[in-house]
Amino acid sequence: MTPEDMDLLAALGRTRAGLKVEADKHYVVESRLAPLARREGYPSIEALVAALRAKREERLIWAVVEALTVNDTAFFRDRATFAFLRETALPELSRRRKDGSVRIWSAACSTGQEIYSLAIAADEARNLEPGVRFEFFASDLSERCLEKAQSGLYTQFEVQRGLPIRLLIKHFENHDETWAISPRIRQAVRWRRINLMSDLSGMGAFDLVMLRNVLPGLDLSVRARLIENLAARLTEDGLLVLGEAESLAGVTEALHPVAGRPGVFARDPAYRAAAA
């Protein structure tokens, strides 16, 4: 690819989805676009980019932008975070929403492992208020990821990354080497294609928003706006959960880190003491 090709891809990624596409990382971009070029019937990535330039076809532009996103995920990724959610955050939220509902949003859900892990965690948590209802929402930019997520079908390799064996046999059925999540868990989740750079004000309020390992792939210029938009979607005592190693230092002061819980942020500083 030429530097001009890389510039075009970087500009598309940034303007359409806030993505950070580094000009010197040809190999990363090429590895992400190669499967798309094959699917679309182009003999090379260069031919795909040439078509992009010539046709300016929205469908192809979005297919390229989707292919540039990072989709790596796993069940119960960051065990300590999920232990905190199961044992502390979900029970606490259920007490506060007694006889109401706790709304949870996996904002960049990729192929679904994260939202299903949360649904399983809520199912397994022992100290929840009996009257409370959990509502699970999941969104992603990628149609392909959403399709797979909604199918609830995973390979043997995928279910062995993070799922304890007892939870696997309790919540999945296997057909040869494919594992299907139980209909009860799958049907508990509502799915929607959402570009997080778009207006999120129609989403309603959430008690828990997950946006894990997404910020590093975003352009610096959009990180603060995204976090502030998500903070505006949180209830007063709601939580935003990023990846364990992620920080909001220097990004925004709209949210405060929860003491002793890496990657967990709250709107209300008082919640830090309650959740710690």
């Binding site: 062995q160 990354r161 993070g162 064996i165």
Partner: peptide, 9 residues
């Protein structure tokens, strides 16, 4: 990766 994940579990 699977061995490490399972041994951690």
């Amino acid at each position: 990766e699977i061995i490490a994940a399972k041994f951690a579990e």
